[in-house]
Simulated scan of single mutants.
Amino acid sequence: MISHFADSALRPRYMGMAADSVGKRAESCAADGRLDRDSWQELSDEGLWRLPVPVRWGGTGGTWWDFVAAFEGIAAGGRDLGFNLSLVAQAGLIRSILLYGTDEQKETWLPPLMSGSVGATALTETTGGSDVTRIRTAARQHQGHFLLSGHKDHITNGPVADVALTLGRVPEHGDRDITLFLLDLRSEGVTRGPVENMMGNRTSPTGPITFDQVRVDATNIIGGIGAGIEAIYNTISLDRLLYGVLAAAYLDPLLEDVLAYARSRTAFNVPIADHQYVQGRITDAKFAVEATRWVSYGALDALLKESPQTSLMCSVAKYHAGETLKLGTETALRVMGHRGYMEGPHTQALKDALGTVIAGGTAEIQRKNVFNQMRRLSSTH
């Protein structure tokens, strides 16, 4: 499917670029727990964020299929899962601005985001977790603008982002008050907490953001007061399917490593690749990778066509992403045995992969959404 819609040169181009930048810095960035801003800037300069943006707004006039092709290249070439999770967070922010932003908002916010600024999508709160409707962050009107107060937790890119798409409430508006605000995180009243000390994905800095009477002009509300839920669900849908795209692209070279090792390592006088139990483990991982890849492509197709199946498909993609990453990285460790278990790239990959079963909506939330969508779609027939 993707070959029909994307520039076929994008994947290898960005793969080579990421191998020379992200891949070479990943280990030191993980040790320091920091985002690789140098690689982020290099990829931005190369036009990554311009790919899905119309020429009118400074983009190259490509499609989200083009972005996915480049994103796959970065995942396969850079081989840094955390860095790619930070890319996912920014992709959703850009899509929200493109879909729901005014001309003024696009003119203001897209140029810096395409040129190297880092974005975050600040949804999660301590009390709500994956249930974004339980947020408490709220804004009150004051002399023609809004003052936003509240606390967000576990925000991808939160400690380092320049811009945040923030979900909050406007209680004066009534029951339908959930609203999206675009914020410059250098504004007075914004405080970022320390980077969370996570087990994995340390190259994707995550942490809290607190807002204390932060001024937000009415021109920086995305989609209007009360329109936040529709817009954020569209953003979440893109995030979820990108996890699936990432899982498949990231695991492709890892399985190549596993296969090469299995062919070179001997046991009982034959390469372990000749043993059926090893073949079974490797093929189980391959089955999962291909299923995840193609359901994610299907989810993107559904999203772009505004299909009634979109939410369901994106949750299926996200669910498979976490499970497939877990299976693929565990397969590498099992096939490589003690060598795989020693601290190094394969243990790091497994630690990173485990984070994806909870990040971006837990596996259990995906099951809940799929069931609810099945029930909804069944009742419409």
Rank of each mutant, 00 (worst) to 15 (best):
E330G: 14
G340F: 00
Q309E: 02
T283E: 13
R339D: 10
Q309R: 03
H320K: 14
G328D: 04
P308T: 02
T310C: 03
Y297D: 04
A317H: 05
V278A: 03
G280S: 13
A273M: 04
L327F: 00
A332R: 07
R334S: 13
K305E: 15
T283M: 12
I282P: 00
Q279M: 11
L350K: 14
V270E: 02
M336N: 04
V295C: 12
A349I: 10
R293P: 01
K286P: 07
S311K: 11
G298H: 12
T324E: 06
H320W: 11
G298T: 07
G280F: 07
D274F: 10
V278Y: 06
G298F: 03
G344L: 07
T310H: 15
I282T: 12
G298W: 05
L312V: 07
Y277R: 13
A349L: 03
P308N: 05
C314F: 01
H346Q: 13
L303N: 06
E290F: 14
H275V: 04
Q279P: 09
A321F: 01
E343D: 09
T310V: 03
V335A: 06
D284H: 13
R281D: 12
T292G: 10
L303Y: 04
L300W: 01
W294D: 15
S296M: 01
S311Y: 06
G328I: 01
T329L: 08
T331S: 04
V289R: 09
L304Y: 00
G280L: 08
L350E: 08
A291V: 09
R339E: 05
V295R: 14
H338T: 15
D274S: 13
K326A: 07
Q276I: 14
P271G: 01
G337C: 03
Q276V: 14
F268E: 10
D301I: 03
A302I: 04
P308Q: 05
I282D: 05
V289M: 12
T329M: 01
Y341H: 11
L350T: 08
D284M: 10
V278P: 15
V270F: 08
S296Q: 03
N269K: 13
A273R: 10
Y297E: 13
L325M: 08
K305I: 00
A299P: 00
A302N: 01
V278G: 10
G328F: 03
K318V: 00
Q279R: 15
E323C: 02
T292Y: 04
G322L: 08
D301R: 15
M342H: 08
Q309I: 04
